[in-house]
Design a protein around this nucleic acid. Sequence first.
DNA 1: ACCTGAACACCGTTCAAGT
DNA 2: ACCTGAACACCGTTCAAGT
Lengths: 249, 249
Amino acid sequence: MAPSPSPRRPAVGGTEKARAKAAGRRHRALGLDAIVDVALRLVDREGIDAVSMRRVAAEFDTGPASLYAYVANKEELLHHVLDRVIDEMAVPESDDWQELLRGYWHAARDTYARHNDVARLSFAHIPGGAKFLDLGERLLGAMIEGGVPVKVASWALDIMALYVAADVFEGWLFRQRYGDGLSEEEIGAEFVEKLTRQFAQITPAAYPYLTANREVMMSGSGDERFAFGLDMLIAGVAAQVPPRSRRTR
Amino acid sequence: MAPSPSPRRPAVGGTEKARAKAAGRRHRALGLDAIVDVALRLVDREGIDAVSMRRVAAEFDTGPASLYAYVANKEELLHHVLDRVIDEMAVPESDDWQELLRGYWHAARDTYARHNDVARLSFAHIPGGAKFLDLGERLLGAMIEGGVPVKVASWALDIMALYVAADVFEGWLFRQRYGDGLSEEEIGAEFVEKLTRQFAQITPAAYPYLTANREVMMSGSGDERFAFGLDMLIAGVAAQVPPRSRRTR
DNA sequence: ACCTGAACACCGTTCAAGT
DNA sequence: ACCTGAACACCGTTCAAGT
């Protein structure tokens, strides 16, 4: 990556710029944005656990201690990474709040999924960026204008965010454990095989419902199952919209 | 804990038993159950991240390598711990499948909550114990007998399990981050304060819905919000029960 | 203020050697 | 088969010392 692999030479004094020049222009200049860049790239390539202060620092040709001028600790660094990912999200345009919710959460799920297990970081985290507030304002506004009671709307948004994060994180974990470079179908097959092995140890007499419905239980792709759950939540919210709240007052 | 802190003496030969006796009867005999015992106790006291092969092994006065005769790796050990916790769960008696689901998932949530962040281990994990199958059989059976289509029943159970695990894990994380020994109210207050600080940077004109509904959005305890989401999911399932499925064939 | 080498107190897992 | 000390290849964070 670096054009000149010049060996480290002792600084001979002068300004910061001069020193960097003399040292052959280090890989990258330190700074919060650059640090988060590197961490996000590591997440995208290998997942959260591949991020270590040492590996990030190495990209700047220095030791881990150098990072502590920009982040208080590793947790804070990872939350900056999450905020970056959240910046990629957007609320679609729609007059129908149900359509808007469906579109948004599917897109949010896709965004998380593009960054491995980054969704895990969203548990119990209040994002720091303004984007989070923009998204909340749009979603909450659309629901309230659609007649959803405020409490129902805000609590439901929390639950949907939790559901999406948990779904993506679990999907990533499954892929890690049951076949890595495999296709969706192959992973499904391997997964079914493991469950079937467990089922094989069971007498059908003791577990009539499980044995009789094995195939249906294991049917469906991850996408289909997610959509099913999301639609159930949206329907649950819709059921709590007061009957005649069509532009009354 | 150990009654006799006898110093390690070199073995002088003889049987295993004789050696143990000569060494002053070690803390505990190695074995899968004993290892899982120790790991679960660590989880209960300090959470999952406090479990290390070294700390578990130390309880047996040995090094981490000794554990690898019983578990393939740390992940497998932790999954045994989760299976132990699942063994504490039970399905209540009820003629009404909705009541049965509500009772079960609330109890499952309480069980997880008694063991710190153990729920995190349930993501993408197929429990190995027979208890898991017992629970599944009872829940699925009750739903099917109640007229819930098989696909809806089994997919919904998956989603509810994910929701419960995510809820408990997130609750634990929140408690870790915003006040540790504090009461529910104090944590709530600290949390509201942090969010309010974030809100303070915002002009009400730009975020009319968020600012106008701040109080309602932040209302409710963790228990209330969980119950709200669970009821929404149960209602979503009930809405998919065919109209006239009251004992028809 | 920013930056760093070295150290501290840990990790999971492997392996040769023992019984 | 079970058990172990030692080693390997890592961790996050702190701190004294530099600029």
